[in-house]
Design a protein around this nucleic acid. Structure first.
Lengths: 238, 238
DNA sequence: AAATGTGATCTAGATCACATTT
DNA sequence: AAATGTGATCTAGATCACATTT
């Protein structure tokens, strides 16, 4: 909404990035990282703010410095489907960047996030000269197809219970746990969990209460705890 | 099943391929096509025969010389989901080839098909030296993600009527029409149409009869005619 | 004000069980 | 024998309509 109000923080150099080890760009040649960082800017996006919108022309590639982002798509009338969750070091908008197509999904900050912006020109320049980056990207796309196809099977063949359990597992796998080792490290609404699983908010709420009653999860407002990950993964039929 | 009984027909050179213009490999440098063709073999797969199986290690990359293939995946218990349809000039198994992972889906011939086999070594050799092939592959993967994500939205948000109509539209778009301009150029069972749409065979049959009653399609055994493609696409909400 | 929660009701489409056709 | 077709029945989960909590 208020994209212009982003607070531009500072220049961040990929070559000196704290998240380098776990980032998409990890293990890349220092000169390539330097080249990517020319004209790079980092902006703060407030919780709920849109980073880019489905259907827009790409202005570049994004890399999450610190934060959490959901990638979603709107269906025929207004119903949201969450396609992917992204965290520190993940890149966003690469498909549009690679093929110079419009963004195919919408990226929204799930919490206040600092996100770097790499210009299309820089990215493509490095891409042309780096077999490594090429391969990394190919690998990432391959994983994306695999994940999407898995999701097709899940939504078409699993029931609501399994899908809600799986959504929780995905949150755990992407964002991990807090220090206590059992609180999923993200704050998310019931509607969003439903939007991940392709389930209505009401059914999601009922299923979560149900899981809580069965001791599969604990509910602490918008924080969800998984005392026994293995048990929940069995419910998800993973 | 009887993969060993394939009749190996002849050596086919990509550089002289009749389908070159419409193939994945179209417009590639002649020397790269020559390089791809070294040790290439073309085999006939009978209708129903499996070209490769989910979970197997890739032995190479396939390119359909002449024929029709479905790519599918089995769900938790035995229910098949068709992920993609492929025709002349389409390549198969490239994800496994690129990342050296196991095949993630199963490829089955929908009709007797002649399919070329390119060795992994040759493909990777050309891939390393051809920016063009690299880019083509990246583009293909991007399209795959886009299509898969569209399918997620469709299966999770559209009803059976819309999904069955869409499956017919996909068949039309991939395989085109016969000479009469209205018979979809493929022979396919009701179950397979259902497996494309994530719908039971019974519901698929009922929906097709329904479409036929409404004049949206004509049924001629296992051949389906679409008198007015536009009308059907409206039903599919495309 | 938006998110959560819960009861009541409805229905699309799955499931079951055969008969018929290819 | 496998694919198609059709009636009868069932039910998971959507939809609706509020009340309650954050």
């Amino acid at each position: 909404m208020r994209q212009n109000s982003n607070h531009i923080t500072r220049h961040r150099d990929c070559a000196d990035c704290d998240h380098q080890s776990s980032s998409f760009f990890c293990n890349m040649a220092r000169e390539d990282l330097k080249a990517l960082s020319i004209n790079k800017s980092a902006s703060i996006y407030k919780k709920g703010q849109v980073i880019f919108n489905e259907g827009n022309r790409p202005h570049g590639l994004y890399c999450i410095y610190e934060g959490k982002v959901k990638l979603s798509k709107l269906g025929d009338f207004g119903k949201e489907q969450i396609l992917r969750m992204a965290k520190n070091g993940d890149i966003l908008g690469y498909r549009a960047a690679v093929c110079n197509e419009k963004y195919y999904s919408t990226a929204t900050a799930l919490e206040d996030s600092e996100i770097c912006h790499i210009s299309l020109e820089n990215f493509n320049k490095v891409l042309c000269n780096s077999t490594d980056l090429n391969f990394k990207l190919m690998k990432l796309l391959t994983t994306d197809v695999k994940e999407s196809e898995k999701k097709i099977l899940n939504i078409s063949q699993k029931n609501v219970e399994e899908r809600v359990a799986e959504a929780l597992m995905v949150l755990y796998e992407v964002f991990g746990m807090e220090e206590d080792g059992q609180t999923i490290n993200v704050t998310i609404t019931r509607k969003e969990i439903g939007d991940m699983a392709g389930v209505t908010t009401e059914s999601t709420i009922r299923k979560l209460s149900d899981f809580s009653r069965k001791g599969l999860i604990k509910i602490d407002g918008r924080k969800l705890l998984i005392p026994d990950v293995k048990k929940l993964s069995l419910v998800a039929k993973l």
